[in-house]
């Protein structure tokens, strides 16, 4: 069997639901696609803690501080798990971090925005994590088995974050008019990025990530699932969703909404969001300040070898 026949039989196998392990043979385009996908996910977990980190010292109670600290620790842990999966595909971790800091690789749009009040912490943990978990649950069926297994652990932890976020939002919604207004204000600012988060609809016949079952659901399907679960849960609290076009179309069997601002999405994920450069700079400084720790550990390993 030559390489192209081997690749054809590989693609037929994954399209039929077959699973691939780290040390299995795989065609280069599949390896590149899964690496890009997992690396972007890892970057997003690593950068995603920065908006929430800003609120650890300002958390209103000790229990909230513990929960938020724990969530931040979980997300950094997810980044570590995912960089480990990505490393096995052939790209060194140091290179992945360098490419992230150099702006050569991306992270999710929602982590490029500022946080303005404690209500943002609730909205992020509830709705950003909810939008993320919809796609992460679908990734438990990924054809790349080490990624699929990692997603099982990650989804379990994310489900706690959603409860934490919903609890924060409910507490505020049972509070003063000012607290309720903070939640509405946070929702007004986060709704646009949330609707952009899953990306523009793709043509399933041409989306290689779908054909190779790196992911099992398309962008639009994920957005529809998110809306079906969360629009009622948002509205039942008396919150207004800032989209006059948003309604469920019974005839079409889908949610109708205003076209998300795809130009904003493209601009934000290429490093032009309101906090993109500030957050990357935080990582650069942090990396330089912690270099001595890595040197000490690698030095000890080198001395022992």
């Amino acid at each position: 069997m030559d390489d192209s026949e081997r690749a054809d039989s590989f693609y037929a196998r994954v399209a039929a639901g077959g699973k691939v392990e780290a040390d299995d043979w795989m065609p280069d385009p599949y390896r590149a696609a899964i690496l890009k996908f997992v690396e972007m996910h890892a970057n997003s977990e690593l950068m995603g803690v920065l908006p929430e980190r800003e609120w650890i010292l300002r958390a209103p109670t000790l229990r909230r501080k513990l929960a938020l600290t724990s969530k931040v620790q979980d997300e950094v842990g997810h980044a570590q798990l995912l960089y480990r999966v990505a490393e096995d595909l052939g790209k060194p971790r140091e290179q992945m971090l360098q490419d992230l800091l150099d702006g050569k690789t991306k992270f999710h749009n929602v982590f490029h925005y500022p946080t303005e009040s404690w209500a943002d912490v609730g909205i992020i943990a509830w709705l950003v994590d909810a939008a993320a978990i919809v796609s992460q649950q679908a990734l438990r069926d990924s054809s790349y088995a080490p990624y699929a297994r990692t997603m099982k652990k990650i989804c379990w932890e994310e489900s706690v974050h959603i409860m934490h976020g919903r609890d924060v939002v409910l507490t505020l919604m049972n509070g003063t008019d000012r607290q309720r207004a903070l939640v509405q204000n946070a929702l007004d600012r986060w709704w646009g990025p949330l609707m952009q988060m899953h990306g523009p609809p793709t043509d399933p016949a041409r989306d290689k990530d779908l054909l190779w079952r790196i992911k099992s659901k398309g962008n639009e399907q994920l957005r529809q699932e998110f809306l079906s679960i969360y629009v009622p849960r948002i509205r039942e609290l008396g919150l207004r969703i800032p989209d006059p076009e948003l309604r469920y179309d019974d005839g079409a069997g889908r949610w109708h909404y205003s076209e998300p601002d795809w130009d904003e999405l493209r601009s934000v994920v290429t490093g032009h969001g309101p906090r993109s450069q500030e957050r990357l700079e935080f990582r650069r400084v942090n990396r330089a300040l912690t270099q001595w720790v890595r040197d000490a550990i690698i030095g000890r390993a080198a001395a022992a070898a």
Binding site: R63, S70, N174, E236
Partner: peptide, 17 residues
């Protein structure tokens, strides 16, 4: 606070609704 069962939202949700 690290477990889903650590958040008892039933009464809060009823009150908010």
């Amino acid at each position: 606070y690290k477990r889903p069962g650590g958040y008892l939202i039933k009464h809060k949700l009823e009150a908010a609704k």
